[in-house]
Amino acid sequence: MKAILLLGAAAAVWLTGCVNVKTEPIRVEPIEITMNVNLRIARELDDFFTDLDTESKVMEVAPTEEP
């Protein structure tokens, strides 16, 4: 009986030693990066060209929505 208990305890210790905690690296989704770049491009273009396009007689600038 004592031997079985000892064997059980040894097995428990051995199995606990096998527990492996693996930390996955943080992944930044490519879709998110593309969206950010597209937003930056849209903002830069709007900042520069909206004035000019509004003044043009052959361009129509849709009114922007208030946030």
Binding site: V37, R40, I41, F49, D53, M59
Partner: peptide, 28 residues
């Protein structure tokens, strides 16, 4: 603008082309 938005010249041109197509009046 490409430098400011940290992107390529082609990406800026592509986005501006899309904007021009949307904003241009009919007949152009």
């Amino acid at each position: 603008l490409a430098k400011r938005a940290k992107t390529s010249l082609e990406a800026i041109q592509k986005a501006r082309t899309k904007q021009i197509r949307e904003r241009s009046a009919a007949g152009l």
